[in-house]
Amino acid sequence: MRITILATLLLAAATAHAAPLEWRGISLSSAEWGEKLPFPGVYGKDYVYPSVASTAYYQAKGMNLMRVGFRWERLQPTLMGELDATELGRLREFVDGTTARGLHVLLDPHNYAAYKEVHVGKPEVPIAAFADFWRRLALQFKDNPKVQFGLVNEPRNMPTETWADAAQAAVDAIRATGAKNLITLPGNGYTGAWSWFESKWYGTPNAEVMGRVRDPLDHMVFEVHQYFDKDGSGTNAECVSPSIGVERLQRFTAWLKANKKRAILGELGGGANAVCEQAVNGALMHLQANADVWAGWLWWAGGPTWGDYFLSLEPGADGKDKPQMRWLQPFLREAR
């Protein structure tokens, strides 16, 4: 059933009085950039890390989780080798400074389950190498309970069974270090909520495979992404309809309930127009109405180098909020 504009507005008003979800935040993107240039690129020119100071804006709005993207290859230049001290220092500076502010940080190797464009599970990039990377990274951050481990951004171009095996190996490697941090587990095929049951273009559906991945501490949530444009890519400013936010999440929500799992909506966004506003509101209201299985959400995106990107929440040079920030305010805690 489609949500009318009036119903959407009434529900949005009611949501303002509901308890927000545990995690509300944003993906700060920039440290993973420059992958198409001669690699690893020049720091400060081809890619940068967001500043700790820049998180104050989002914290003041009521966000409590910052997802920071980076490249596996820059952090570990040789498979099975030591982490690069300089690159680790840049990441640690952001993580330590941001968590010291009271925020949580979700680590995001923004690699699509590949290393130098070769996907995990191929002979050149064995599953053991992915597990080794996470063992090393977990050792660096396991003593900070405000750090969360996102296994990788949007696995793709691989059998779902291979990705599930790789994810399990990474989870096991993380826990073997003694780390108790929250882990977020994406699905195959860009981890779309709307394609969780898809069987046409990425192999066995996530719904049939990903539930077998186990965390011995049971401190793991699924991470799905969802956009509301025609192809679900998030590359178009126009959304399909006011109700598309709810429609693309409902079936995955039912899967979570049936399988007694929880999830975080790791990416969502929409262009600054009335239809997308209603779609985003509908999606976030759906999450809050199903807080038993939804742990939170993150907007895509923010970061220092987006310019006039239509999904960026970074305030302009004049300090004014982007229109989408107004949409999110009913779903955030009161600024402190």
Score class of each variant (00 low, 15 high):
9 L>T: 01
83 L>V: 10
320 K>E: 15
71 R>Q: 15
86 T>L: 05
285 M>L: 07
86 T>Q: 12
246 V>G: 00
74 R>F: 11
199 S>M: 05
30 S>F: 00
66 M>C: 06
264 I>S: 04
287 L>P: 05
173 A>H: 11
310 F>H: 04
168 Q>N: 05
223 E>G: 03
167 A>E: 05
171 V>A: 12
64 N>C: 13
301 A>R: 06
37 L>V: 09
20 P>H: 13
292 D>G: 10
272 A>N: 15
218 D>S: 11
154 E>C: 10
325 M>C: 10
101 R>P: 06
33 W>R: 13
225 H>M: 07
320 K>D: 13
37 L>Y: 08
240 V>P: 09
328 L>Q: 12
26 I>K: 07
303 G>V: 02
280 V>W: 04
49 Y>F: 15
164 A>F: 11
65 L>M: 12
149 F>R: 03
159 P>M: 15
107 L>S: 06
87 E>I: 02
211 G>K: 06
82 E>F: 00
43 Y>L: 14
11 L>F: 07
143 D>K: 11
253 T>M: 10
247 E>W: 09
322 K>L: 12
146 K>G: 10
12 A>D: 13
175 R>E: 12
117 E>D: 15
282 G>P: 07
228 F>E: 04
141 F>H: 05
260 K>C: 03
256 L>W: 09
1 M>L: 11
222 F>T: 04
187 G>S: 08
101 R>D: 14
132 D>G: 01
294 W>E: 04
248 R>M: 04
86 T>D: 11
6 L>E: 15
301 A>Y: 08
203 G>L: 11
118 V>L: 14
108 D>M: 03
127 I>E: 15
128 A>P: 07
38 P>T: 13
140 Q>P: 02
117 E>L: 14
283 A>R: 01
254 A>K: 10
167 A>P: 10
272 A>C: 14
288 Q>D: 03
238 E>V: 09
101 R>H: 13
220 M>R: 02
189 G>F: 13
231 D>A: 14
9 L>W: 08
100 A>V: 00
43 Y>M: 07
212 R>I: 05
41 G>R: 09
